[in-house]
Amino acid sequence: MEHPPGPDDFRRLFHETNRRVYAFVRRYATESDCDDLIAEVYLAAWRHFDQLPAEPLPWLLGTARKVLANHWRSRGRRQRLAVEMAGISQLATADCATQAVDRADLVAALRRLREEDREILLLVGWDGLDSTQAAQVLHCSPQAARARLSRARKRLAECLTEAEPVTQLQLLTEAN
């Protein structure tokens, strides 16, 4: 008999994935909103435990994306983008920039990208998903995700070439 899911399985799921769900949610929500939003994601996971695939991260991030969409539905797009960029700025690892690109340039380039480009780039580059898994999060076909990723990679390279630093003050101003 297959082992039925139990609370311990759920706790294990939470402990194995919560950091990555936080890193995703924080990109699109203020620090103070994260806890409630993440709780809502895992409540959904509890209820839909039978639907979770062996690799649950794409499902969790796809659910987080819906939760965030609901969260932002009543708020302005400008505010949402400001929060997103502040989140990215906070999360971007400060000391991991390559010799070719520094962190400030990278953040500036991400800021210049279109939302859909930034979204798939971060799903792949930061969340570690492949294009098929990103497609699950974005609710599109793997082919569409691959095409979207290809375009986004090209645009990122272009934006990095054109990048000008964005100051922390700008980001904080946008976020408030």
Binding site: C96, A100, V101, L106, A109, G125, A157
Partner: peptide, 14 residues
């Protein structure tokens, strides 16, 4: 593009 992606991946939250 590959360099740009490596830069992005290098800045991923740890």
């Amino acid at each position: 593009e590959d360099t740009a992606m490596r830069a992005l991946e290098a800045a991923r939250p740890i």
